[in-house]
Design a protein around this nucleic acid. Structure first.
Length: 783
DNA sequence: TTAAGGAGCATGTAGACAGCATGTC
DNA sequence: CTACATGCTCCTTAA
């Protein structure tokens, strides 16, 4: 289908696409148009990655806008939100406006109301629904990218419920669901009352194969010699082979450590094919990586990058990830070894994709479990860059002939698994049931069940009554924690929640409880709006209620670290002793009831939360990033992630404290501020001045400048001695509101000759730890 | 004497959304 | 119910 044949798009849109070199629609795109994508009809497009899914979304959204509507594009990751935003912003030249909103990149709701296209993560959309953003009811088109993630145990239910709510809000709305090729795209289409476009078509050919011995055998029967030389690994041979043709590769492995080790080895291969110009540019990137964070991980990554290779996993900071991804797309980096993060993230295609590890450690499976077909296909789908590569190659590695056969059967010839809703899991339901009640989607038990009937879960469920049973359990949980109130209907008896209740019993219960009114309490409303898991909220509320004295920072950090919203640090072998010891030292500070040491699992969790809490406390005692990453064996990205989550949870905890009239609101606020800035209590004032962070605040404090007022009155020479440059000093003084911020002609004054205040005698090597954090420092040390 | 290489053993394992209001070194 | 790469120590070997 030719682009010219399209109708209903905003004037200028077709011109725009033509200038981008698009003349013809790809077959799946044409099929989508025929299925009514540009007429406002709902559609599920299950097509491989990089075969023009975004264009299907764009055509649907643009035609909806041309009809006077408004479109929402839902993505699974923040990084994808910015990627899509950048893509759609090109439409501004023909007058279509774009806005983004995610947790960290905030736009006010009113501002979004004026935009034609809004890009958001699924959680953000859920949050907007809960908070009743009124523009949501103006939507005429919703695109859900990577809709197969509904299958995800953690985040899938959010997407599922959000789509159901948006559809309820806007009955005639067009839904465009973009999916990888999955086993049951038809079921998803049925659920969404949508047409289905399901195809394997790709714009560039993808060859899949298995490497074994010295040969690469493809699915089309062809064979390519790739000899493994000397002691090199299979993946090194494959990377070298394609690099000699000028192609880049992506190696997927199953652990961070493997990714780092592989990148180091592959650097030896890549460095041979790098020009002098490239080497200079890579050196610049390496420098940027080192500057972004001063840790061992960063140093290792920088060393690799100098060689033209890189690793990629969630331990990297987001800046570093972006640097690596961009450099790979610019063909500066020749190879990336990555954990599965990369397969799900932003677009980083390569000529050759090597899936080295197809088994992953899974404790629930008791050892290594094979990856899902869908997952492996997602990785393999990264092969081939449209317009750059003649074709893409995806290679699995076999160590034996049997392996080779198994890989063909399991991944190359196999169809991906079907998408199954995970909504009936209790953690998911408890969150979404509360939100559904709090935001007024259901006022009675009957309405609640009726709403849940509109989810994919209901349409897939074979086990009658399961959803009702779990829902009842969840309602009781919410009621007993004072998040909801139930009135009327039959009082639930013990066996009403029992899993042994027969279907017949349930039917009678439903009729008798059908008119039961459900209402969120004020606390329940707060929890829903704060986007907390009710169980997290309950834990925090109980913890705060339990505190007889002002909670310490460590106590609060451990408290938020043990909620289900915080991803706990893993307790390494030997660390149960270390943290067991810390537990006995600081037991009095911890909030709530500690499990007994004999309850193995729960005690382990408690200690793991203590470890996470201690990490946060160390951060808030100004320990350096590199010390922390080394001590806790984490990457810079993990540290920032933990700090970020703690900030969010403590912010929520502050609201909860206010809600329950806790007297510890200020203590929570202070703990939050300390973790946000990574400083001791005494620096909180200084750090509120623009341009002053944890490092500068400490240096200022050391020369006797303890609060913003001192910045206004103190001797400029003293201030300058604490800060490196005159320019930064001026900016800071200006931000502090000093009348004459100019540093012209001021010389740094060393020592405490500044006069009014005595300089602290503390060296910068031993940053002050606040309150009781001091004593643990020595006993825990660098374990 | 030393460097390199190999056997044997212990070790540990992927990912990252959300409130609110603005800015680190 | 299931694995496997890594990196250490300790030892052997070749020069």
């Amino acid at each position: 289908m030719n682009l010219e044949e399209l109708s209903g798009l905003p004037p200028g849109a077709i011109d725009h696409f033509q200038r981008e070199g698009i003349e013809e629609l790809y077959p799946p795109q044409a099929a989508a148009v025929e299925a009514g994508a540009t007429d406002g009809d709902s559609l599920v497009a299950a097509v491989p990655t990089a075969s023009g899914k975004t264009m299907i979304a764009a055509l649907s959204m643009l035609s909806a806008i041309e009809r006077g509507g408004k479109a929402l594009y839902i993505v699974p990751l923040r990084a994808l939100a910015s990627e899509k935003k950048a893509e759609f912003e090109a439409y501004e030249e023909f007058g279509v406006t774009v806005g983004v909103t995610t947790g960290n990149y905030e736009s006010t709701s009113e501002w979004l109301a004026t935009k034609d296209i809004i890009v958001a993560t699924s959680e953000k959309v859920d949050s907007l629904v809960r908070n009743g953003a009124d523009w949501l009811s103006d939507l005429t088109c919703v695109v859900s990218d990577e809709v197969h993630l509904i299958d995800d145990r953690n985040r899938g239910p959010t997407l599922e419920v959000t789509l159901a709510k948006l559809r309820r809000l806007n009955p005639g709305m067009q839904v465009v669901a973009l999916s990888a090729t999955v086993g049951n795209a038809d079921e998803i289409a049925d659920w969404l009352d949508a047409a289905l476009v399901d195809t394997d078509w790709r714009p560039i050919d993808l060859q899949m194969g298995v490497h074994y011995g010295n040969a690469l055998n493809f699915d089309d029967g062809s064979t390519h010699e790739v000899p493994v030389e000397g002691s090199e690994k299979q993946e090194a041979a494959l990377v070298r082979d394609i690099l000699e043709e000028g192609g880049s590769s992506l190696v997927f492995v199953n652990s961070r450590r493997n990714a780092e080790a592989a990148a180091r080895r592959l650097g030896q291969v890549a460095t041979r094919e790098i020009s002098d110009d490239e080497r200079a540019e890579l050196a610049g990137l390496a420098e940027a990586i080192r500057e972004d964070s001063d840790t061992e991980t960063s140093a290792d990554l920088a060393d690799c990058v100098e060689q033209g290779s890189a690793f990629h996993h969630a331990g990297l900071s987001s800046t570093q990830r972006t640097i690596v991804e961009d450099a790979f797309r610019d063909r500066l980096l020749k190879v990336i070894s990555a954990t599965p993060t990369l397969a799900a993230g932003v677009n980083t295609p390569a000529r050759r994709v090597i899936v080295r590890d197809w088994r992953r450690f899974d404790p629930s499976a008791g050892g290594m479990a094979p990856l899902d077909v869908l997952e492996v296909h997602q990785m393999m789908g990264r092969a081939g860059r449209p317009g750059l590569d003649p074709y893409g190659e995806a290679v699995l590695l076999a160590k034996s002939h049997e392996d080779s056969q198994e890989l063909f059967d399991r991944y190359i010839w196999a169809d991906p698994e079907p998408v199954r809703s995970k909504l009936a899991a209790e953690p998911a339901l408890r969150t979404h049931v509360l939100a559904t009640i709090a935001s007024g989607f259901a006022r009675t038990r009957e309405e609640l069940l009726e709403f849940l009937e509109a989810t994919l879960y209901a349409s897939q469920s074979t086990e009658a009554g399961r959803l009702e049973t779990v829902t009842e359990t969840v309602l009781q949980y919410l009621e007993s924690n004072d998040f909801i109130e139930r009135e009327g209907g039959t009082e639930p008896t013990d066996d009403a929640a029992s899993a042994f209740t027969s279907a017949a019993d349930l039917a009678t219960q439903q009729s008798s409880q059908g008119d039961e009114r459900l209402e969120a309490t004020s606390l329940g409303h707060t929890v829903s709006r704060l986007y907390l898991d009710p169980m997290s909220a309950a834990e925090i509320v109980h913890g705060l209620e339990d505190a007889d004295e002002r909670p310490t920072a460590l106590g609060l950090y451990q408290l938020v670290s043990r909620t289900p919203d915080m991803y706990e640090l893993y307790l390494r072998s030997g660390e149960d002793d270390t943290f067991g010891e810390l537990f006995y030292e600081r037991e009095a500070e911890l909030l709530g009831d500690a499990p007994s040491e004999y309850e193995d699992d729960r005690f382990e969790d408690w200690l793991a939360a203590l470890k996470t809490g201690k990490l946060l406390a160390d951060w808030a005692s100004e320990d350096d990033e590199d010390r922390l990453t080394e001590r806790y064996k984490i990457g810079p990205g993990d540290l920032r992630g933990k700090v970020d989550t703690a900030e969010w949870l403590l912010g929520a905890a502050e609201s909860l404290a206010a809600e329950i009239d806790s007297e510890w609101t200020v203590a929570v606020r202070e703990a939050r501020a300390r973790v946000e800035h990574g400083v001791g209590e005494e620096l909180l004032e200084l750090v509120s001045v623009g341009g002053v962070g944890r490092k500068r605040a400490r240096r200022l404090y050391e020369v006797g400048i303890e609060e913003p007022a001192d910045l206004r009155s103190a001797d400029k020479g003293v201030i300058l001695s604490a800060l490196k440059g005159a320019k930064t000093a001026e900016t800071i003084l200006e931000n502090a509101g000093r009348e004459d911020p100019s540093m012209d002609g001021v010389e740094p004054v060393t020592s405490a000759s500044g006069g009014d205040t005595a300089a602290s005698s503390r060296g910068s090597e031993t940053p002050a730890a606040s309150e009781r954090d001091d004593d643990s420092q020595s006993s825990l040390g660098d374990f």
